[in-house]
Design a protein around this nucleic acid. Structure first.
Lengths: 188, 188
DNA sequence: CAGGCAGTATACCGAGCGGTATACTGGTTG
DNA sequence: CAACCAGTATACCGCTCGGTATACTGCCTG
């Protein structure tokens, strides 16, 4: 394993367990079996490390969103694919998704916030586009695409966190439950 | 205003904006117009300050939960009261609720987590009891009270965060929407 | 073989951290 | 008035923080 990857892995584990601010650079490099200059060689700063960590892992999620988030006239189908995509990604990247969730509502002036705001905005933008595109077939949704995007992601994240904490399993049945629950919220 | 309250207010504002770990004790006391020994006189430690801050404001929310969370055979009514109670509390304590949300999924070994885990467990326990009590009238809910409690709170928090960010208004209409959306998720 | 460069280690830096020892104040109680 | 105590200020502590200057290694390229 390269030093670079060892640093990223250690950082993910430690940030996930104790939070970005509470973990020191020294601790990260020790866990990775390297020394500080290596970290600064690859990432420039502690914050650069966090940003790299977040954005590098996000590309897979982003790819899924681009692929499953295309609207072709069947909103139910698109949302179903998205829920399934999120579930799959969260299970394949448990630690990373935990970190992302712990930073979901990060304080707006924290360093950590700057690292996640970019990916949050990208998720939000893709989801908004889905609901915006769907307006042509569902006129009653007009003007609420932002709210829909926020609450759709909120609902998914709620269930994913419940799953990561062992309260529920991310099954196919749960996909449909969330889907219908959300759709009911829209059309009621 | 007493020094004690000035410290609590400054800490709330600063923790909310930049996070617990990123804010120094010196900064808090300067913003409050006092000096460090006063802070340590009242709260013992930085962590004690956070715990006091969290638990002292939580009593109002807790009182609401005890009052509105009693189940008397009408689950819809109880949940409706709870949603309304949460909305009201969040609007009356915007900064505090923001802080609580930023710590919602705090890393499990962080100091901040220890400060919020107690109140999270209390909320969870009260909500679980509601769904557990309701089982006698809704047999199909049996065995899922933990999941219901987690997702009910998750849904409420999602909408509250959307409201705090200006995406939606916490109106009566939204209370009913969440209520029906959640109930639909249960009975579908 | 010479030059350069990516990567790494040792040792160090100033700054800020959480926390405290000490002494002073002013009001309350005997 | 004496004793006390909650509250506050000054000045300080050891430690860890994020970050770096310097020098060394070994590989790739000329």
């Amino acid at each position: 394993m390269t030093s670079r990857k060892a640093i990223l892995d250690s950082a993910l584990t430690l940030f996930c367990a104790r939070g970005y601010d509470a973990v020191g650079v020294q601790e990260i490099v020790e866990a990775a079996g390297v020394t500080k200059p290596s970290l600064y060689h690859f990432f420039g700063s502690k914050n650069g490390l966090l940003e790299t960590l977040i954005s590098e892992r996000f590309v897979d999620l982003s790819r899924m969103l681009e692929r499953d988030g295309e609207y072709h006239g069947d909103l139910t189908l698109t949302l179903q694919k998205l829920i399934r995509g999120y579930f799959h990604f969260a299970l394949e990247n448990r630690l990373y998704y935990r970190l992302q969730l712990s930073l979901w509502f990060a304080p707006p002036e924290s360093e950590a916030y700057h690292a996640v705001s970019a990916i949050n905005q990208k998720q939000q933008a893709i989801l908004e586009k889905v609901f915006l595109d769907a307006v042509v077939d569902h006129g009653n949704m007009r003007g609420r695409h932002k709210l829909y995007a926020v609450t759709f992601l909120g609902m998914i994240n709620t269930y994913i966190m419940a799953a990561l904490n062992g309260h529920v399993e991310l099954s196919d049945q749960l996909v449909y439950q969330i889907l219908h629950q959300f759709m009911y919220g829209i059309f009621s």
